[in-house]
Computed example of a mutant assay.
Amino acid sequence: MASLEGIKDDDLQRLPRASEQRIPRRVDGWRAHLAEAGASPPVHRAVDQYAELTDRSRRRVRELLLEYQGAPQARTAIVFLWGGARGKNPSLAVIGNPRVRSGSGAPWLRAADDHRDAAHTFLWNPRIASDGIEQDSLVAPRAAFEKLWSHPNLSQGLLPGCGTAFGTKLLYWAARCELGFDVPPEHPIPLIYDLRVFESLRALGLAYPSDEGHPTAFTNPQRKMPFATYEAYCRIAYEWSNRLNERVANINHEGLDAFVPDDVEVMLFAVNGVGLRTSQCTDEPATEGSDGGGPEIDEPQVDPSSTGDLDLAAAARVLNALAAAA
């Protein structure tokens, strides 16, 4: 494995951190959709509280999610609001898109009882996030991803109308509510896999061994994605965060917090493929019809402020070094 000696101390200090990532979201337009969907009072309260947040960092959003430990639908609404679309109607891709609506309401708030109960029991059950990781470190993210799309009694997965980009946000927050941000996990954890993350993985030319053993390119999250793709992405982010921590230890840098896998995710998201160099040759990405997708909602329009005051050039340099050393 190649050395990371080329990564500069200054670049390490400038890298984005997941816990402090702030994504401003407007909430106007949500309340009418929630009323139409028949949302419960806790959901309305959660949306109101989110709207009042002055600090919308991931760390603060986690604190809000923990306040609704006994209200899984409210937690789901917070996650979708946090990861929602921008534009004339900020909730369009979350609960108001006619393409993914069921009846007169949003499918994840007005689904049949079997969908709703199965989804929330899975998504917000602490044992899924913690015990699954402890028992089988390599398969935990994949197992979560498979369960999201492969419920035996639900042909469209646990949340009909919810695709990879938003489904993995729910998996991520279910894990992060249990694990917190301050201690690096001992195993890979579920992470967010959206179009911006994919663009960076593709720009780096990264490949992973498929279930059949041959090198495979990462897949557009808007397609039906192989389960192995998500597992490989989560494992790469975990390994790269560990390598960054080794580099920090080698330079004896005091005062620099340990890196966690979602820090790598945020770097991939923020860079969005810009300034990255292809380091490997890969096969073509998997096509529509690969196992493990699920219906997809519109990819959110990302406000430039979602990357915050980040040094994107430093993030790109570090990602290039990590990919070259892999």
Rank of each mutant, 00 (worst) to 15 (best):
A232N: 00
P226M: 09
R223N: 13
A232S: 09
Y208W: 12
Y233R: 00
V197D: 05
L191Q: 07
P209N: 07
S200P: 10
P221Q: 07
P188N: 03
P190R: 06
A203E: 09
F198L: 09
P190K: 06
T229Q: 04
S210V: 10
F198N: 13
C234K: 01
P221I: 05
L204Y: 05
L201Q: 07
R202A: 15
Q222R: 15
I192N: 11
Q222T: 14
D194R: 04
R223W: 12
R223Y: 13
T219L: 03
P209S: 11
H187M: 00
M225K: 15
A232R: 00
Y208F: 15
Y193N: 09
R196A: 11
A203S: 14
Y208P: 01
Y208Q: 05
I189S: 00
L206F: 02
L191Y: 01
D211Y: 05
Y193L: 05
I192V: 14
P209K: 11
P209T: 08
E231D: 01
F218S: 09
N220K: 12
L206Q: 04
Y208G: 05
N220F: 10
H214L: 14
T229P: 02
Y193S: 08
L191G: 02
A228Y: 03
Y230N: 09
I189Y: 00
P226V: 11
Y230L: 06
P215R: 14
L204H: 06
L191C: 06
G213W: 05
R202E: 13
H214A: 15
L195Q: 12
P188Q: 02
T216Q: 15
P188S: 02
D194C: 06
V197A: 10
L201F: 12
H214Q: 15
R202C: 08
A228R: 09
S200T: 11
H187T: 07
I189W: 01
P226N: 08
P209G: 05
A217G: 13
G205T: 05
Y233M: 10
L195P: 01
P209V: 07
R196C: 01
R223D: 12
L201E: 10
Y233N: 02
S200I: 12
G213A: 07
H214I: 15
A232G: 01
S200R: 07
D211E: 15
P209E: 12
F198C: 10
R196I: 04
P215G: 06
Q222G: 13
L195D: 11
